Amino acid sequence: MTTAPLDDQRRLLDVQALDTRAAQIAHRKRQLPALIRLAELDVRLADVDTSRVASRTALNDIRRELTKADSDVEQVRSRVARDQARLDSGTGTAKDLQAITSELTALGRRQAELEDVELDVMERLEAHQTALAELDAAAAVIVAQKAEAEAERDAEYAVLDAELATLEADRAVNAANLDEGLIKLYDKLRGQLGGLGAAALRGRRCEGCRLELNPSYVQSIRKAEPDQVVLCEECGRILVRLPEPAARV
């Protein structure tokens, strides 16, 4: 059976209060509005980055398409230039010159078709470049917003960490001279019971689980030796007996 001076047991409530405040600050650190914004911004940035990758891929495809279209147009233009030079030179038979003229007509139509294709590809390329520029701008805005949220988070962390450091120092002072076995039991129970290892007994009520205890159990606690460490029969936490309120006259 664990025993510890009653005064140590009562001082344990001060340690518990400090640990509870520290746990509340740790919870606040996990629930900062800046963290929520950062998570939202990360999702938005991931979506934009996915779109940017798709847009760059499409741009590369269109650039290759434009290179082919340019090459096709250039080939026809070169052929037109050669035929026109032959026609302008007047060399060859009338039949040859007539054939060249017919070919130039056909090449003219082909060149017009290919130039329309080239123009369409250029317009699509410009549209995709504009879309990518807009995505890049959107990403830059999100990155800037993330930097602001991170700065806010870090500033809030600094304040909360300073509070935690003060609580930890106070906790060390309060726990320094307490019974070693009592502290070990308390820390064990605190780890098992959601951070609350000790609670006051007020009347028949355990302040840990907030339940009214069996009267006979409470009576046995009241009769126990002052240095006996007792546990709540409902939640298993250390029950700290406080001085009985003075009877009214």
Rank of each mutant, 00 (worst) to 15 (best):
Q9E: 05
L18I: 11
R30M: 10
L18E: 01
H27T: 10
T20W: 00
R52E: 10
R21A: 13
E40D: 10
K29A: 07
V15P: 00
K29L: 15
L13V: 05
I25Y: 09
L32V: 02
A26M: 09
V53Y: 04
V15Y: 02
R10D: 05
L6S: 11
L35T: 14
T20P: 00
A34I: 05
R52F: 02
I36N: 08
D19Q: 14
R44K: 13
L41E: 08
L32E: 12
A46L: 09
L41I: 10
L13K: 01
K29E: 08
L13C: 02
A22L: 08
K29W: 00
L38A: 10
D47C: 04
Q31K: 15
P33I: 09
A34T: 07
R52Q: 14
V53P: 02
L13D: 05
T20F: 03
L41Q: 08
D14G: 12
A46G: 09
D42I: 06
T20C: 01
K29V: 08
P33W: 07
Q31V: 12
A22C: 06
R28Q: 15
R37D: 09
A17Y: 03
R52N: 01
A39E: 15
D47Q: 11
L38Y: 04
R52V: 13
Q31C: 14
P33D: 04
R21M: 10
I25M: 02
A46E: 03
D49M: 09
Q9Y: 06
Q24K: 08
R52D: 03
L45F: 07
V48C: 01
I25R: 02
P5R: 07
A23T: 11
A46I: 02
Q9I: 05
A34F: 02
L12H: 00
R30A: 15
D8M: 02
T20K: 06
R21P: 01
S51R: 11
A17N: 07
A39G: 13
A26K: 09
D42C: 01
D19I: 11
V53H: 13
Q16P: 05
T50Y: 03
L12G: 01
R28Y: 04
Q9K: 04
K29Q: 15
Q16D: 06
L45V: 04
L18N: 00
R28A: 15
V43T: 11
A39I: 04
S51Y: 00
A39L: 08
L13S: 04
A17V: 06
E40P: 00
R44E: 13
T50A: 13
V53R: 10
R10L: 06
A23Q: 09
L32S: 14
K29S: 11
D49Y: 01
L38N: 03
D42Q: 12
H27R: 14
L35D: 09
H27V: 08
A46S: 10
